[in-house]
Write a protein that binds this DNA or RNA. Structure first.
Lengths: 182, 182
DNA sequence: CGCACATATGTGCATGGTCCTCTATATGCA
DNA sequence: TGCATATAGAGGACCATGCACATATGTGCG
């Protein structure tokens, strides 16, 4: 859906090949977005076809040819249009909650096991987020504005806040279950 | 992905037609799951073909024929298998965060507008969740166990907790932005 | 020497999903 | 009278995604 725009956003910072894009997506924005390799290549092709990006060629010795992609002016315009467009929130889908909702078919200890597994997962996620180091504010990497820096911090904090809320909810739910099936 | 299982779960409580299912999905589990009408019908057909549900026929006067679907024993087995299976969390995708991450291209007041819009949305969602009334614990509807009741409350609390965390994060982010672009 | 892994780009296929449209009838509203 | 909405189901087009696989080459390890 908006993988197009996520890619436009990343490319607007710096031209990249599909291969490099994949690594950036996995690393930098991995907390709130993912993309399959083949999907990235397909999306890049589509962007080029639509005139939103242009494809370069860098022949390398000893390794495969690189195809760095650059956002065109039309691409930047589309990116800005998207940034300003009304955000229609996609319907939330939580497979874990769906499971839990119907989990009264399971014996209570299995329900607790579901919560425990979830707790472990989220705790791991939280630890990863907490491990993210930001460079000191007074030494911003080139091309990064103060606003951009703040937004990237905010994105990480979003993950932190929700991970902590999730852990707290799991604890409360555990206590709730203990009360009815000790 | 697990619309199959969500439907099995709902049908396990009470046989239903596709039409009725759609309403239940939109209402009761609407906070964490959605489904397109045609997709529901297709999924029901698939379930019947796989022997996980059976299709009945109720001819009505003056309105279209009903096709209530009932979960078979195989369907219940599949449901239990799914409930107990390891939950591989699908990658999180948050279009709003993606937008915000690249929003340093926008003038600061537009960024604030994004946060404001989001705040309104989440506040509305929160109000809807808060409006949900549960029947008193001592008068459970038939077929609902105490565990089931607690899990449904927990599902709502999940929505509440995250909506509140989101609002708090938005406030913090607003303050963060005010500090750098007063 | 063989094997795994990294670099780099793709194709093909199946799945799951949304959106739009069609078919019928009944009720209610202006 | 006409229009919207509710009831009930279904087909077609299209899209994004994910998995498996293909292609070539280089490096490091045991």
């Amino acid at each position: 859906m908006s993988l197009r725009h996520a890619i436009l956003g990343i490319l607007s910072v710096k031209p990249m090949s599909g291969y490099e894009l994949k690594k950036v997506v996995d690393g930098s924005v991995g907390h709130f977005w993912t993309a399959d390799r083949s999907q990235i290549y397909r999306t890049l092709s589509a962007l080029v076809e639509e005139g939103l990006a242009s494809r370069g060629t860098v022949v390398q010795e000893g390794r495969p040819t690189l195809h760095p992609h650059t956002v065109t002016d039309a691409g930047l315009a589309e990116l800005d249009r998207w940034l300003a467009s009304p955000l229609q929130a996609p319907p939330t889908r939580d497979a874990f909650l769906a499971r839990l909702f119907f989990a009264d078919r399971l014996p209570p200890e299995r329900v607790r096991a579901l919560l425990d597994a979830r707790h472990r997962e989220v705790a791991e996620e939280l630890a990863e987020l907490e491990a993210i180091e930001f460079p000191p504010r007074d030494a911003l990497p080139e091309g990064v504005t103060e606003l951009g820096y703040a937004l990237r911090e905010a994105a990480r904090d979003h993950g932190l806040a929700h991970a902590r809320a999730e852990l707290a909810w799991i604890d409360a739910t555990r206590r709730r279950l203990e009360r009815i099936t000790p």
